[in-house]
Structures are given as structure tokens and as C-alpha cells.
Design a protein around this nucleic acid. Structure first.
Lengths: 347, 347
DNA sequence: CCATATTATGCAATCGTTTGCAATTATGAT
DNA sequence: ATCATAATTGCAAACGATTGCATAATATGG
């Protein structure tokens, strides 16, 4: 490893001058600077970030904690964050919690030792507790809120998205609309559930607990929940399903196939969060689409701008709009005149 | 930030002793150790990894460079690596190159400053050049080989996978089998192409350049290539397609749909690399499935074990077996008796 | 040409650990 | 007790950068 001293020797100046030539060029005379840069280039010098960070007490490093890198939603989020970070010359440490609060805790502890400048996190339900491990770290939460006071959040309009989706189903003529909701200790699930309830209420449709099943955001949970809802007696069985996240939607669709139920003739289905899978499966899924990449990018930009301005990070909460994409998985319920089908809106 | 000194004061010992109590417990007396650990716990002490790494000249950190985090294949790879790293208490820096050699170079430079212990990389075509930036860094290449001498690789049996796929098509009765191959400066593409050629040769089917189109591994490339192949005059148009990676397979399938060609009746298609999409689309795709997670996990284990043994890293090359999953996208070509369909093997 | 202001460099302390070596204390055999 | 030996602990010097302060070099102005 070639160090400052090596460069200093070659350029015949003190290490201090080399340091300045590199990080505050205006402080050193033109000629010397040239000589130093030349020497550095010659030796292939690369500053030791560890030493630099240690001394500066700041690292140009960010922590990113997501809950499931295999979920394209999170992968996209991560890409948005990384791109933004790279733009500003920050490096990011990526951790995966698999929705496990313990892993989250370990990740935070590991991160802590690396003195990141900031943290971007998709919080697990225990995050409020876990985040106490890093009390002074500028943090922004993505996608969900843990309810930790003083933390900024960047989320999408979950309530609005759910409303649009459910409203769409109601307009098609559905009355028994089931929902596969996420864990109710996660804010996105709560909000999407709220949008669902509100919209039913507005339409004068009574809320039925039987039609709302929780799941743990994984494909298998969606499958089980859908199986349960769709094997209710015909009188109670929902004619439409609103599913709270992308993975569970996959599970739900697979369950529907297992049961041999036809979409959309016998069951309409709307998912939250778009994906290639949703767009290209047959029939193509009607979904609430989120600006996922932008969510990550923006969250990172927000964090970085507050860092650079050295501001005390006002606890703002940003909401991004979602869009509703009508495809082929929704139609009027059985018994309704199929003429309505023609009226379906296009995306 | 609470430091060693703080703990030392509280426990009434020297910082040196605290350090030892934490990293070489057997060197300090039972009683003192207890007192120190207690103090550390009380203060919520977390070692400053920067300082530690600086002094130890080793960081318990790995670099991971992949080319596309949005591709589930790479995301899965990353998860395998991370899980293995976490198991051994290593932290990983993740970088994304988007197949861009310049980004790869930047990533390597950024990484360099953080003194990682090792590097896992899915190399871009310029990696052989770029890797010179980190000459002494223990490196293992995943999925592909850049041809850099002395570097270990962990890959799958691409030739074998391609052979099985093409053989399967031949046995079904296909003679004009097209291939959408990747960039020929990437080893996986070369190998899969080789398997394709060899199998044709063995079966006595002449190799036709017209039927082999290169692509840049992205969905859109697959689409374009498929469009080109499938609009050849009927006499030349392939009756089956072997596609070299998952993203291009998606594109190819979409192209087929655009053209209104039915799979598998009018066209058989086999992809390389399985995915949820491939498994659940209609008709479900026949694929060469790779042990993706294991690839990442194993690569990381390999790297770590060579690190811990302090060995000079023999340049081994590990090949993992692929498996062939026959689903619904392959059938005998038009004009062949459909009776053959029944004989299709199961996975 | 000298005093003073300005600019460019160097010195040395520092960030928080680790570790070779020396100093201290405990242990056990005589 | 006494002394050799072993087990603990502390001192102080690193690791590679940054930076306040002092100093040397140069420029400015009268």
C-alpha cells in the first residue's frame, strides 16, 4: 500500500503538503501541486479511507438496510439509493434483514463500527427499538415508517393507492372485496388497509373481518390467505381480491390457479406494486404501481443534502404519488352484464 | 462515540487491557475481564472498526461487484455472498457496474481505499485490465471468468447446460435451432455457445451463422434478436430457440407474443437460468437452472477460507452443476407427430 | 531597502485501536 | 521466607491520514 509519505518523498515535500495538495488544492502553490499530483499518479496512490475517516471523523459512507434483496421492489430501491450515493461520491454498506429484527440489530451494530455518515432503512417492526443503537445518526426511513420520532421518511401514498384500487373494484360492481393485508405492525400495511376500509365505507359497503386476512409479506403467506378466502362458502366468498404487496400477490395468483378459478371472469385481482411478473403474466395484473427507483434515489438525495448542509435534519415526511395501471385481471363480477367490460379504463 | 479509553476509565484499567479483554480474552484475568465487559456493556461500547482496521491493517470487509442488481440472478448471487459473509462476521461493500467497465473501474478504486480483505466480482469484459488496480487483493470471480491469471473462479457448467438444452430440442425433432447468445467477450456466452455448437455437430446438424444472434444480455436485446430470427423466411426460420440468459429470454418471449406465434406449438423455447417469471409464465418455460444462491455462497466461502488459512490462494476453478427443468415451452416441431409430447421428461 | 502583509510549507499532535516489550504481581517449589 | 517462573497488566509506538499553529519564503508598499 503506497501512502502519503511515499508520495511526499517522491515529490520532496512534507506529507502535510501532499495531503493539502489532494484535498485543498488552493492551499498549495501551483508548481508544487503539479509535482505532487504527478508523483501520486506515478505511484498509483489511493488515499487510505480508513485513516482519513478516522482522522476526519467522517467517512463518506452510508448504510442501507433493506428487508429483502430478493424482492425486486427492494432491489430497485437499493439501486436508486446506490445511484444517488455514487453521484455524490459516497459508498454504501448494504445489509439485508429478511424482516428479522435481530438481523436488523446486528446490521446496525456492524454499521455503527464503520461510522457511516447516514442511514437509509426499510424498518422492521422492531426498528423503533433498534434504532436507539445509533442515536446520533442522520436517518431516513424508506417505504415504511417505524414511528421513531425525529426521523425523516420517504414513502408512497399508500392510502390513496389502496383507495383507487378498491374504488376501481367497486365501480366494476364488486361488493364482496377481500383484502390480503400485510402485518399490521408495518405502516404500509396499516395504510393500505385504511384506504381499503375508507373506500368501502364511502361506498356504503359494510366492512367484514372475515374478508381481511393478514400475511407476512411473503409469497407463501399470500398463497395461504388466498386459499382461505377463496374456499369460503359461495355466499361469502369474495368476488375480488386486493393484495397488499407484490410477493403476496404472486402467492395469491398461484393459489387461484391451484383452485382452477378463472381471472378475471370468476375473480378480479389487484396487486400493490408493479413488477415484470405482474405485467407479463396471463392475464396481466391490474396494479397500483410505485415509483420505486425514485423512492430510493430521492431518499438518498434527501439524506445527503441534509448532511452537506449540516442541517439538523428537520423530520420531514415525503410522500410520492402512486399510479394505477388497469390491465386484464379485473372485470365485473359474475352475474353482472359483461357489457361493462368494454368500459374498462386504460392505464 | 464511546471509545476504549472510556471503558478503560470506568473499569479502572489501561486501554491496552480493555483491548485485550475484547479481542484476546484468554490474555486477561477472569476477574478483570468481567469488570471490563461489564463496563463495555454499560457504556454501549462498539469498537471503531476504522481505527481497528487501520492498526491491524486488515478490515473484515469484502468487496462485491456485480453487474446488475436488478437482475434476480445477481440479486440472488449477492444474497448468497452476504449470507456467507455474515456467517463469518464479515461486512460487504456492494457495487453495481451495469456492465460498464468504467463503473467497474470506479468501483475498484473506491473499494481500494477501504482496504477490503478480498474481492468477489462478476467481471465485465474489461476486468482483466481493471483488476490490475488491486494487484494484491485475493479475488474470486463469480459466474464468469475474465481470464486474469491467478484468479479463482466459481462458475456453473455452461457448456454442459447448453448441451443438455440443445440435445433436448434435437431429441424432440428440431433441426433449425436458433440461439440468442450473449456478448462473445463474456465467458458464459462463449461457453454456452460452445455447448450449442458441439451438440449440433454431434447430431450432424450443420451450424448456421444466420441462426445465431448476439445480444447484450438485456431484455431489449433478446427481444430484437428474437424478432429478427422469427421473421426469417419460413424455410429458414428456426423452430426452436435457445436463449443465453434470463433477461434476454424475457425479451424473446415478449417478441414471440408480439408476433402471435404460439409456444410450444409453433416454436419451442429454452432459456438459460430459471426464475419465478420463467416458472409461472404461460406456458411455463423449460430452462437450464443454475444453483445461483449456492454460487454466491460458495464463492464467498472459498474466498474466506483461503483468507483465514493465509494461503497463497491456489487459482482453482470451481464448476457447479446445472439442472435441466422441462416445462411447457418445448415440444416437437410442427409436422412431427404429437405423440412424442407424452415422452417429455420430468425435471 | 526595510517593515509588514501574505502565501506556502513544515512540525507535531491527533483520531481509536493494537501490540511488542517491560514492569508488576501472583504462584509454587524449595 | 526466598527466588525462579509464569501470569497479568501497563507504556508507548505504531497504523495513515488531517489540521492548528509556527515558521519560512515571498510579495507589497512606502
Amino acid at each position: 500500500m503506497v501512502s502519503l509519505d511515499d508520495v511526499a518523498k517522491l515529490a520532496q515535500v512534507s506529507p502535510a503538503t501532499v495531503s493539502r495538495a489532494l484535498s485543498r488544492p488552493e492551499m498549495v502553490a501551483e508548481a508544487t501541486r503539479e509535482r505532487i499530483l504527478q508523483a501520486a499518479r506515478e505511484l498509483g496512490y489511493q488515499p487510505n479511507q480508513l485513516a482519513r475517516s478516522l482522522r476526519r471523523r467522517s467517512s463518506r459512507t452510508l448504510g442501507l438496510i433493506i428487508t429483502d434483496i430478493l424482492n425486486p421492489f427492494h432491489a430497485t430501491l437499493a439501486k436508486g439509493v446506490q445511484d444517488a450515493a455514487e453521484k455524490h461520491n459516497y459508498t454504501v454498506f448494504l445489509f439485508n434483514t429478511d424482516e428479522d429484527p435481530e438481523k436488523e440489530q446486528r446490521a446496525l451494530n456492524a454499521l455503527r463500527g464503520h461510522l457511516p455518515q447516514g442511514l437509509l432503512i426499510v424498518p422492521t417492526p422492531k426498528a423503533k427499538e433498534n434504532l436507539k443503537l445509533v442515536p446520533k445518526l442522520p436517518t431516513v426511513e424508506l417505504d415504511r415508517s417505524s414511528g421513531t420520532p425525529g426521523v425523516r421518511t420517504v414513502m408512497v401514498d399508500n392510502v390513496g393507492g389502496a383507495r383507487t384500487a378498491v374504488q376501481h373494484l367497486i365501480e366494476l360492481g364488486h361488493r364482496r372485496i377481500g383484502m390480503i393485508v400485510g402485518r399490521l405492525d408495518i405502516s404500509t400495511a396499516v395504510e393500505r388497509h385504511l384506504g381499503y376500509r375508507e373506500t368501502l365505507a364511502t361506498a356504503g359497503i359494510p366492512y367484514s373481518e372475515k374478508l381481511v386476512l393478514p400475511g407476512n409479506h411473503r409469497e407463501e403467506d399470500g398463497r395461504k390467505a388466498a386459499l382461505a378466502l377463496l374456499t369460503l362458502p359461495p355466499e361469502e366468498r369474495p368476488t375480488a381480491l386486493f393484495v397488499g404487496n407484490n410477493e403476496m400477490t404472486v402467492g395469491a395468483v398461484l393459489a387461484v390457479r391451484e383452485l382452477g378459478i378463472r381471472i378475471p371472469q370468476e375473480l378480479s385481482i389487484v396487486g400493490f406494486d408493479d413488477s415484470r411478473w405482474a405485467a407479463t403474466m396471463h392475464p396481466a395484473l391490474t396494479v397500483v404501481a410505485q415509483p420505486t427507483y425514485e423512492l430510493g434515489f430521492l431518499a438518498c438525495e434527501t439524506l445527503l443534502s441534509s448532511l452537506s448542509r449540516g442541517q439538523p435534519a428537520l423530520p420531514t415526511s415525503i410522500r410520492l404519488d402512486v399510479s394505477f395501471i388497469v390491465r386484464e385481471s379485473t372485470a365485473p363480477p359474475d352475474g353482472f352484464t359483461n357489457g361493462l367490460k368494454q368500459q374498462r379504463r386504460k392505464p
